[in-house]
Amino acid sequence: MSEDWLTGPVLEQLNSGVLVVDEQFQLVYLNSFLQRHSCVQLSEVKGKSLFQVFNDLPEAWLRRKFASVLELQSPSFSSWEQRQYIIKLPHLRPATSSSQYMAQNCTMLPLKDPGGRLYVCLLIEDATDAFVYQQHLQSTLQKLELSNRIDGLTQALNRRYWEEQLKLEVQRAQRYKQPLSLLLFDLDKFKQLNDQYGHLGGDSVLIELTARVRALLRDTDWFGRYGGEEFGIVLTNTGLAGAIEVAERIRLAVSNTAVTFHEQSIPTSVSIGAAQLYIEGDRAHEVLIGQADIALYNAKREGRNRVVAFSEGETEFLLRTQQA
């Protein structure tokens, strides 16, 4: 072919790796891209085993791939999404990628020389850009998912997500016959507080309040903002006595120390209603919220800054007052 002179220079300047091995996996050729990136000279490694020269290759996997190329005389492929790299090589974007190695798309092709001897050609394309984009995309999606769950002001869970978790936990507790309790609490006299210190003052109290509460909870509890100044906590694997104990700790954590806002000390307190799950059925989570809400109502009625647990008789009381 009259264009023979082209192939050499093009191969040498190609921005992809080209590597050729014979049937015994001995190195026949490496282009400049690979020689430079791996700090290996073709003259020094020619004829040596691929797995000796690059000793951290996934050998069993690569042997299987090469065997398929040789046996079937058809190409084989590997994508960075499944295997980030085959040969550990540094990439040229050290600042933007979290990985220190070049992500690679690889193609393995069957070759035959004029004498009929078989070879495998491994083409390595740098896919670090795609890898970096993919990582950015994933972290963005994670943030997006998180922001779909979180209340922007307090960083507690938002109502929709919190209610979903309540429902799931109620089903789980029913299935495994484990206790589950719910706390609903209100910041006392929030409207008055807003009037006196402004909305920024009110906001900063809510933020401080949630931080104090969160510090008292376990990883397995679900803490969400239910309404303006109303919050809910799902206490998994916890009976009513345990729930009252937690509620009391929360009440003290809030009322013992005033919140400081613009060098003013704002005394605050919370009223808490507690209820344990006893109901069966699909709507159990709604009933549970209703019960905790009754207890919370009673806590406020009895003078605020206190914990009240729901007890059975109150259902009748509620029904009676509704009928009256």
Binding site: S68, L72, Q73, S74, P75, S76, F77, S79, Q82, R83
Partner: peptide, 20 residues
């Protein structure tokens, strides 16, 4: 990950041997 790789491997083998 291995399962995806198996799927692409088998598909690629089926496709390329057949079309070749």
């Amino acid at each position: 990950a291995s399962e995806l790789e198996m799927l692409t491997d088998i598909s690629s083998i089926l496709t390329t041997t057949f079309l070749n």
